[in-house]
C-alpha cells in the first residue's frame, strides 16, 4: 500500500515536472533575478559587475536626507495615478460591459455581426490604437477637436494629451473604449450559462425587468463578475503601453510600470528600476489577495 502511493507520488511529480520546469524558467527565475537585482547597483549595460547595496534602492539615509524609491515623490505619484486609473477605468468598463452584454444577450437579427463588430477595438494592438487616438486628439489637426468645434461644445481647440486637467481622463477614455468589448465578452459568456428556465420562471411570476436584473441576474453573474474584475484590475494595475505611447514622460499619467521602465532603461539605474518592479509586483499581489479575500468574506455572509 505504502509502496503504491509512493509510486503514485513519484509519478505525479514526474508528470508535473515539465510544467514546473517551464514555470520555473519563464516565471520564477526572472522574478528571482529582478528581486536579486533590486539589492544591487547594477547598470543595464553591465549586468555582470555589480555590488550588493542592501536596501539602499528602497530607502537610504544620506547626510540627513532620505533617498530611494520609498522616499521618492514621483514613485508615490505613480502609485496614486495607477490606483486612480484602475479604479475608474475598471468600474466604467464593468458597467458599460454589463450593458453591452445584456443587449447582446437578447436574440435579434444580425446579432453575430454586432458581436464581431463590437470586438474591433479590443482586436487592435494597443500601440496602434494609442497612436491613432493621439492623432485624433491632436490639437491642430485632430478630428475630435474639429468635430467638437463645429458642434460648438468647445470654443477653441483643446490640447487633450498635454493639458494636465484632461490628460488622465483621455487615458481612461481610450482604455475604456478599448477594453469594454473584452469585459462585455466575459460577461456575455457568464450570462449564457444562466439556465433559460430561470428567466421563464421569472416571467411566469411576473416580476419587473429591474427586479429581475438586481435579484436574479446580478447574483447569478457574481462569480463571472468577480473573475472579470480581477482580470481587468490585474491588467490595469500594470498599465504600460497605452500611457507610454499616448502620453510619454508626463508626470500627470506616469504609472508604476512606466516609472520602473524609465529607471531600468532611460536612467542609469537598473538596480533601482528592479526595486520598483519588485514593489509593483508586491502591490499587485497584495491588492489581488485582499480583493479576493474581501469577496470571499462578503459571499459567505450572503
Amino acid at each position: 500500500m505504502k509502496r503504491a502511493s509512493f509510486r503514485n507520488i513519484t509519478k505525479g511529480w514526474l508528470l508535473l515536472s515539465p510544467m514546473l520546469i517551464v514555470l520555473g524558467s519563464v516565471a520564477i527565475f526572472p522574478l528571482y533575478r529582478t528581486f536579486l537585482f533590486s539589492f544591487t547597483d547594477a547598470k543595464i549595460d553591465d549586468l555582470i559587475n555589480f555590488s550588493f547595496i542592501g536596501f539602499n534602492n528602497y530607502i537610504e539615509k544620506f547626510e540627513g536626507l532620505y533617498y530611494g524609491i520609498l522616499a521618492d515623490s514621483t514613485w508615490w505619484n505613480a502609485v496614486y495615478n495607477t490606483l486612480f486609473f484602475t479604479v475608474i477605468s475598471v468600474t466604467l468598463e464593468t458597467i458599460l460591459g454589463l450593458i453591452v452584454a445584456l443587449c447582446l444577450h437578447r436574440a435579434f437579427k444580425g446579432r453575430g455581426i454586432f458581436r464581431a463588430i463590437m470586438l474591433i477595438p479590443w482586436a487592435i494592438p494597443t500601440v496602434v490604437s494609442a497612436k491613432m487616438w493621439s492623432w485624433m486628439l491632436n490639437d491642430q489637426f485632430g478630428i475630435i477637436n474639429d468635430m467638437l468645434l463645429k458642434v460648438g461644445i468647445i470654443s477653441e481647440s483643446v490640447a487633450w494629451t498635454s493639458n494636465s486637467d484632461t490628460v488622465m481622463w483621455v487615458v481612461i477614455f481610450v482604455d475604456v473604449w478599448k477594453t469594454t468589448p473584452f469585459m462585455a465578452l466575459l460577461i456575455l459568456a457568464g450570462l449564457q450559462i444562466i439556465p433559460g428556465h430561470i428567466f421563464q420562471a421569472a416571467k411566469v411570476d411576473g416580476i419587473s425587468g429591474i427586479r429581475l436584473f438586481f435579484k436574479v441576474i446580478l447574483p447569478l453573474l457574481r462569480p463571472t463578475l468577480i473573475v472579470s474584475v480581477v482580470f481587468r484590475a490585474l491588467d490595469a494595475l500594470r498599465i504600460f503601453d497605452l500611457i507610454y505611447v499616448l502620453t510619454p514622460s508626463n508626470d500627470d499619467t506616469i504609472s508604476m510600470s512606466v516609472y520602473a521602465r524609465e529607471n531600468l532603461f532611460d536612467f542609469d539605474k537598473f538596480g533601482y528600476g528592479s526595486a520598483a518592479s519588485t514593489l509593483l509586483f508586491l502591490v499587485i499581489c497584495m491588492l489581488t489577495l485582499s480583493y479576493l479575500g474581501f469577496m470571499r468574506l462578503t459571499s459567505e455572509k450572503i
Binding site: 491632436n138 490639437d139 491642430q140 481647440s157 483643446v158 490640447a159 498635454s162 493639458n163
Partner: peptide, 16 residues
C-alpha cells in the same frame, strides 16, 4: 503659442 505646443516635437511644430 497654441496650448498644444506642450505636446509638440520638432515635426509637430514644423506641421503648423
Amino acid at each position: 503659442s497654441p496650448n498644444g505646443v506642450l505636446s509638440y516635437q520638432e515635426e509637430e511644430s514644423r506641421g503648423v
